[in-house]
Write a protein that binds this DNA or RNA. Sequence first.
RNA 1: GGGCCGUUAGCUCAGCUGGUAGAGCAGCUGACUCUUAAUCAGCGGGUCGGAGGUUCGAAUCCUCCACGGCUCACCA
Length: 495
Amino acid sequence: MQEKPLSELIQQRIKKLENLKNLGIEPYNGVFEPSTSTEEIFQRYGGFNRDYFESENISVCIAGRVILFRDFGKTCFAHLQDFTGKIQIYFRKDILQDKFSLLKNLDIGDIVGVSGRLFRTKTDELTVEVQDFVFLSKSLRPLPEKWHGLKDIEARYRQRYVDLIVNPSVKETFIKRQKIIKYMREFLENEGFIEVETPMMHLIAGGARAKPFKTYHEALDMELYLRIAPELYLKRLLVGGFERVFEIGKNFRNEGISTKHNPEFTMIEFYVAYKDYHWLMSFTERLLSYIVEKLYGQFKVKFGDTLIDFTPPYKRITMYDALIQNGVPEEAIKDWDEAYKFAKDMGIEISKDSSLSRILDEIFKEKVEPKLIQPTFVIDYPVELSPLAKRKRENPELVERFELFIAGREIANAFSELNDPIDQKERFLKQLEERMKGDEEANEMDEDFIRALEIGMPPAAGEGIGVDRLVMILTDNQSIRDVILFPLLRPEQTK
RNA sequence: GGGCCGUUAGCUCAGCUGGUAGAGCAGCUGACUCUUAAUCAGCGGGUCGGAGGUUCGAAUCCUCCACGGCUCACCA
């Protein structure tokens, strides 16, 4: 935080704080027990007319932040905002008597508790006529302007607390985020899944292809990685006899930041014994449509200027067919030289060391991904892109894997889990070779995981869903930073 | 990391080919007992992101730096 001389505006507010203290009022020591919320007031009393309030004398106590203030001399109007909404409150000198003069020391942004009776104004607005009020927190720093609000994107992320006060849609997004996760958990629990917590600090960063963050444990004198995926631990639990498990939590990847990537992000991973990826696809359809239906009461969701339809079933297409349908010649799919040439012609930079699968993966990202707007399962990936997935029975060069794309974004990744310890060991060895060749993101050998597979893991299917990306789509936000309360930013400049 | 754009009052923004900074809101003083972006009268508020440079003169032109946005690269 920068230390510069307090601005005039802040000094004025400190003066008011002192005025209150001199009058024996401690604005930070107030206590107050609200009897209701603004939302509840509108729910219960929104339907009644003026005469009702004249005859019934409804008293309420509410607390919140003053976000608007209109001074008329012997009366004042203000808007009080609590978590659930806002309501107009009305101060009169003839009711408040001496206490009315305290309003001179009230600022927009202050948190107050008020008690009073409900009435309707001339213009029929439901309003609290304040009988008594108490300062609960004095705000020393001015809030942004009342109708343009806080627009500066940097300030919105750095001072999310202000963003949340003045931009109601931001709060909406994060409430929806919580609901999405709640419905997800609810669905899985109803399907017999057990929620677990596995380590976030790993000796070996496995289960995904990504660069990890490093950290250090002093007492044990050892380097650790923040996890890039919980996968290998969850599969150890399958070995241990958990047949349906899931974990919701943060993953950390030491990579670039973009509208689709935050270094720490939330994943859900779930595993089911005795099922395969076909079963998982329909399960995923049921899961997503359940969430969307709970959230919106229908299956269609507006995202940008498109309408995403979550009504099952979703389109399924193999990776190779998707490539061919998007103009990649068949020869390029089988032949390294053709693929290399095709990629080069498209302007994709490919190293000469890249394998055919990796080239195709690049072409896929460029040509196919952006076109997958409606929920689409892309299935059957080359084995070497998927070192933890089970081979297809009919074609051992492919694996039983799918990725789910929505709005051109990869939302989920799933496969029939490889449970053959010997094959798994060989794949790790292959990854190690790539690592030797300089591929920092290739998997490391995890001996203990192999040992677990040697004990015996049931056939199983597992899936990971990028929660932030799903929330983006379901809340119509174009940047991952808009669905993460405190996205990572460089430190603020000290002036 | 590359490219493009941005950074001016607490907030939202103007500021032309260089002539020494403006509005609205917020704030302060005053008026006003049903307002809705209340209104009316008056007042204060700026290291123009930072550092250099060009110039008689820089918010404006140039260079470097910082932070952010978009985008590319990167990204299981």
